[in-house]
């Protein structure tokens, strides 16, 4: 089992900081453009952190696909009737 390496250059946020920001980045919760750019810059040259992000992205993608469902026609008709009554 290997741990993330701290591959920090002069302007690089480094692996530890990148991992701390990973979920916020994935969920679109990094509001500051500079922080977002710094994270993306790190991903550009760090295969390990890129893999971690990719792992989470694919997990989310599979979850969205698996959860997709269509409301049955009977429910649509029922709601139409309900809203007409109201």
């Amino acid at each position: 089992m290997t741990k993330a390496r701290e591959t920090k250059g002069p302007d690089d946020i480094g692996c530890l900081e990148a991992i701390e920001s990973l979920y916020a980045y994935l969920d679109g919760e990094i509001g500051d453009p500079q922080s977002r750019a710094a994270f993306e810059e790190h991903l550009g040259h760090c295969r390990s952190c890129f893999s971690r992000l990719e792992l989470e992205r694919r997990l989310a993608e599979h979850a969205r696909k698996a959860a997709r469902s269509s409301a049955p026609q009977a429910l649509r008709s029922r709601l139409k009737g309900l809203l007409e009554k109201i």
Binding site: M1, T2, K3, I19, S48, F50, S51, R52, L55, R58
Partner: peptide, 14 residues
Amino acid sequence: LLLDQPEEFLAWWS
């Protein structure tokens, strides 16, 4: 836990 994910797991998944 995120730091400790085995490289093998990451490679497989990604």
